[in-house]
């Protein structure tokens, strides 16, 4: 994939260089890797870096079934633009079996279980078949994420690599602007962090670190994908 040769913002160059080297080393070791992406504005940096430095890496999108159509279109557009191998991970549990005793979908009564079925379970076979999991979490997004390291071990002993862990929201902005990269279409409507439609509230302002619109009104801040499963 030939990406337009725009120079990286100067102050980010050393870190991008480091990511390039780290990715190169993982490839050299012959690790079977994959990335996961939620296809928000935030995610575009990692996707762009993958397209530049490891374009054959499979990128899994957790298609929970409850995304905004804008997110689904955004993922298709980026797959074409960046030439990425984007795959949908879907729950093995049929939607009709995701209703509670009164017939309502689980996000109305038991979001933790809904996330388990739609965000945690679908990745199990992907994780089992791979050795390296790359994700764009950043420490400044939440307390849970701040406790995460650049490299670590996840469910089933898989190696985890978080190349953007030390990036701030402002730096993500610089990268996006520097390369003139697209934004999630809902951003201009005031959304900060965009997840599943039922669990995303429209926040008043919202910058790229702001996850307050996710599971708004609940104590829940994470879906369980990135926490709890590690060693």
């Amino acid at each position: 994939m030939l990406l337009p040769a725009t120079p990286d913002p100067k102050h980010l160059r050393p870190r991008i260089q480091r990511i390039q080297e780290e990715l190169f080393n993982y490839r050299e070791q012959g690790l079977r890797g994959f990335a996961t992406s939620s296809f928000q504005s935030n995610s575009v940096v990692l996707l762009h870096l993958i397209a530049r430095f490891w374009p054959t890496l499979p990128v899994w999108f957790l298609n929970t079934g409850f995304h905004f159509p804008e997110t689904l279109s955004f993922r298709r557009g980026l797959a074409v633009r960046f030439g990425l191998d984007i795959r949908d991970a879907r729950s093995p549990v049929s939607r009709a079996q995701q209703r509670d005793a009164s017939g309502r979908l689980l996000f109305t009564t038991d979001p933790d279980h809904c996330c388990h079925l739609n965000k945690v379970l679908p990745l199990d076979p992907v994780i089992a078949a791979a050795q390296l999991w790359i994700n764009g979490v950043r420490a400044s997004q939440s307390a849970e994420r701040a406790a995460m390291a650049r490299e670590g071990t996840g469910r089933g002993g898989i190696r985890r690599y978080h190349p953007l862990i030390d990036w701030t929201g402002a730096e993500v902005e610089h990268y996006l602007n520097g390369h003139d990269l697209p934004r999630h279409p809902l951003e201009e409507q005031g959304y900060g962090s965009v997840g599943c439609e039922p669990c995303t509230r429209r926040p008043a302002g919202g910058d790229l670190d702001d996850r307050s619109g996710r599971w708004s009104g609940q104590n829940k801040t994470e879906c369980g994908l990135h926490v709890g499963g590690g060693s």
Binding site: N63, G65, F66, D88, R90, R95, R104, L105
Partner: peptide
């Protein structure tokens, strides 16, 4: 559930 998410299911 039906009109929005049912249609979504078909769209996937």
């Amino acid at each position: 559930q039906v009109n929005h998410w049912g249609t979504a299911e078909l769209s996937y």
